Deep mutational scan, measured.
Amino acid sequence: KELVLALYDYQEKSPREVTMKKGDILTLLNSTNKDWWKVEVNGRQGAVPAAYVKKL
């Protein structure tokens, strides 16, 4: 499985998103959308802005 690093804090704004903190390591589930990537963090799945994460 592919991992990404959170470059910034992000507070979810809808139920389809997830909150992450700078430095979090997230499991990347889907990166086909260039703006929003689906990730899993702390057992929750949701979208985060692609510009806020970097593939490891």
Rank of each mutant, 00 (worst) to 15 (best):
V4T: 02
D24C: 07
D24P: 00
M20R: 01
L28Y: 02
S31F: 06
Q11W: 13
L29D: 01
S14N: 13
K22W: 04
A6S: 05
Q11E: 14
E40D: 08
D9I: 03
A6Y: 02
A50P: 06
R44H: 08
T19W: 05
V4E: 02
T27F: 13
R44K: 11
Y52F: 12
K13S: 11
K21A: 09
Y10T: 01
K1A: 12
L56G: 03
I25R: 05
G23H: 05
A50F: 02
K13C: 12
V39N: 01
V18N: 04
P49Q: 02
V53E: 02
L29S: 04
V41E: 02
K22G: 04
W37H: 02
E40F: 06
G23C: 08
L56H: 06
N42P: 05
S31K: 10
N30W: 07
N42L: 07
N30V: 09
P15T: 11
G43R: 03
T27H: 10
L56E: 04
K38E: 15
Q45M: 10
K21P: 00
L7N: 02
V4A: 13
I25F: 06
K21N: 09
K1G: 12
Q11K: 14
L3Y: 15
T32C: 13
V39S: 00
W37N: 00
L28S: 01
L3R: 10
L7H: 02
Y8L: 11
G46A: 06
V48P: 00
V4K: 00
V41G: 08
D35T: 13
I25T: 06
V41I: 15
V39A: 00
V48C: 05
Q11V: 14
V4M: 04
A6G: 04
P49T: 02
N33F: 07
V4I: 07
L26G: 09
K22E: 07
I25L: 09
Q11C: 14
R44G: 04
P15Y: 10
G46S: 03
Q45N: 07
K54C: 15
T32E: 14
Y8K: 13
T32M: 12
N33L: 09
V39E: 01
L29A: 03
E40M: 09
V4G: 14
D9N: 08
T27C: 12
W36E: 04
W37V: 08
A51Y: 09
S31N: 09
S31V: 08
K1M: 13
W37P: 02
L28V: 07
V41D: 03
V48D: 01
T27E: 10
W36L: 04
A47V: 15
N42F: 08
A47W: 15
A50G: 04
